[in-house]
Design a protein around this nucleic acid. Structure first.
Lengths: 198, 198
DNA sequence: CTAATAAATGAACGAAAATTCATGTTAGAA
DNA sequence: TTCTAACATGAATTTTCGTTCATTTATTAG
């Protein structure tokens, strides 16, 4: 490429993130995204095949980032129970720092199955599997009860965090801070799955 | 009303439930709903002001039903911990028996804030509060730890159940049955919040 | 049976957006 | 400097529905 720099591509993704978060995919207008990105409507179609393509790319990019970040953070801990604790904290922190990403993940995660029949959300599944791997590890080390099913536990844990963030995304003045929420959720999740009770 | 029977209204709601669940609100066509209901396009507008109105009415009706049913079921138990257990079971059973309702709640719950600025989802909040009331009751009876915050716990618990049902709604061949999922989730939730550990 | 009213119809309308494309602009090669 | 391919533009085109409304059909009262 001579130009067709990454720059415009990035700008469009950034603009779309903002607009999608603000109005949701269907109510977002391509022209509005273009305007936000400071380019002409037609330019969008040089970088993306169609509107859907913007969302898919955006989602892919963000999840990549989130996933990579989470992996790094988890690797800092050795104790599986500590890893779980950190997962919660990092996840909720992400939500707090990037409400726009959170909103898109929240909504689009639920919709993707409907408007993109054959979009297999690999990245998200990988994210979820970080949790089940930790649980598996904990079981092997004898820290987590044998009867805990990782496939269910990962969903329960993620679901708890996700519902909490939905609440944040929707309310302007969050009632609870991350630390508190994160601690509570981790706390009863860990109490619920671990072997020895205090 | 002379005629303008409830019948057509019901038919439209039923049709919309099916179509919305299938394609999501935005991709659903009014003409398609009409066709599914076996009536003319225009007839829809005799019973509903506009497309949004169909969704809101539908949501309201379904939540009413779900809420009423849940209240009844919970009332059958006296022990707060048992109530929690039953909540999980009833909720997941509902999802299993009415996938279409589940799909609509799943998606629309997340979207409502975006496409209906001033639609206060009272019914849903009431549903959530059933959980926090149980937790409160448990705390008063000394069954649940004092440091548990009902406002967070209710979301964590609901989130866990909700994420589990999302999984069901999306996958054709559920890996786990309700009983198992319900038991697991309840189990580590209860372990996580109660006072005396076994 | 007839009129009067209500309900239902579906073709047609029009507004809203997604996408296209003829034209203009730019950046680098020669 | 000139040439040209890649890029960018945004007005025009096309498509896609939600919604309307003139007309037809059904219902009930007198």
């Amino acid at each position: 490429m001579r130009h067709k720099s990454d720059e415009k591509y990035r700008k469009i993704i950034a603009a779309a993130t903002k607009i999608f978060a603000q109005k949701g995919f269907f109510k977002a207008r391509v022209s509005e995204i273009a305007k936000e990105a400071g380019i002409a409507d037609g330019t969008v179609y040089i970088y993306f095949k169609h509107k859907d393509d913007i969302l898919i790319s955006l989602f892919e990019e963000k999840m990549q980032e989130v996933l990579g970040n989470m992996k790094e953070q988890i690797a800092l801990e050795t104790d599986p129970l500590k890893k779980i604790e950190r997962f919660a904290l990092v996840h909720l922190k992400l939500i707090e720092d990037h409400k726009d990403i959170a909103e898109i993940i929240q909504v689009e995660l639920r919709q993707s199955s409907k408007f993109m029949k054959n979009y297999n959300n690999t990245k998200f599944l990988e994210y979820l599997d970080l949790i089940s791997k930790i649980i598996q590890e904990g079981k092997e080390k004898g820290l987590i009860r044998d009867d805990i099913i990782p496939g269910i536990a990962k969903r329960a844990f993620f679901g708890a965090l996700d519902e909490m963030s939905r609440f944040w995304v929707l309310s302007k003045k969050p009632k609870y801070d991350i630390q508190t929420a994160s601690r509570q959720i981790t706390n009863f999740f860990i109490h619920g799955i671990r072997k020895q009770e205090t």
